[in-house]
Design a protein around this nucleic acid. Structure first.
Lengths: 101, 101
DNA sequence: AAAAGTACGCACATTGAAGTAACTACCCGA
DNA sequence: TCGGGTAGTTACTTCAATGTGCGTACTTTT
C-alpha cells in the first residue's frame, strides 16, 4: 500500500463506487441516513452503512446521534479534514462536467 | 452508470488501483512499457497492459510504435484530454502530501 | 551458445468490493 | 392492525478487478 505516489492517499479515501457520491451529498450539509440513501439511487442500506463507517474511521465523516427514547435520529456530516478536499473535488467535478458523452 | 454526480465521470477514468500511478508516470513525458513497469512497483505485465489499453480506449493515453525491423520500440504518452486533468490531479497530490500517517 | 531485454497474448485462479435477502426494534398515522 | 418510516445487522452470494504463470517472437549483450 506504500506507493511512491501521494495521489493514492487521496484516492484511497475518496475513490470507489460510492464514496464520491456520499461526499457530494454531505458537502451541502448534514444529512440523515435515509436522506443520503434517497440522494444516491441504487445504493443498498448495507453498502451505505459500510461506506459511512469506513469514512468515519478515516476521519472524513462524523456521525451524530440525536435519538430520543421516542425517535431515532442520526445525522452524518463531513469533517474539517474532509472539507479540505473540496478544491480537489471541485476540480474533478468541473472536469467531469465539461467532458462530453 | 448514469449517476447525477459528475465527479464520477472523472473518477471512472482516473480511479482504480493503477491508473493514477500510470497517469503520474506519464505526466513527465512519454515512457516505454518497461519504464512504466519499473516506475510502478508490483504492477504485473498483464494488468499494466490492460490499463494502458483501457486508457487508450478512453482517449487518455496514446500508444506510438517506433519499432523497426530490428528493434521493438513502443512509447506511451498522455493525450491533451488527459493533460486537462492536471489541475485536479495536482490538487489530489497536494492533499495527499499534507496528510500525515 | 546462453542469458537477458522488449513487448506482448492467453488461460486460469484468487480476492475483495458490492449486492441480495432476510432479520431486529421501535415509532407514527389511518 | 396494516402499511410505512427510522437505522441499522447478519449471513450468504456474485462478479469484476487483479494476479499468476505460461508461451511467442525477435533483439542485443556476454
Amino acid at each position: 500500500m506504500t506507493t511512491p505516489f501521494p495521489v493514492n492517499k487521496a484516492l484511497d479515501i475518496i475513490g470507489g463506487k460510492w464514496r464520491p457520491q456520499v461526499y457530494c451529498t454531505l458537502e451541502t450539509g448534514p444529512r440523515r441516513f435515509s436522506e443520503i440513501q434517497r440522494a444516491i439511487p441504487d445504493v443498498s442500506r448495507k453498502v451505505l452503512t459500510d461506506q459511512l463507517r469506513e469514512l468515519e474511521q478515516l476521519g472524513m465523516v462524523r456521525r451524530d446521534d440525536y435519538s430520543t427514547d421516542k425517535q431515532l435520529h442520526v445525522e452524518y456530516s463531513l469533517t474539517e479534514e474532509a472539507f479540505s478536499l473540496q478544491p480537489a473535488m471541485k476540480a474533478l467535478c468541473s472536469w467531469g462536467e465539461t467532458r462530453d458523452e
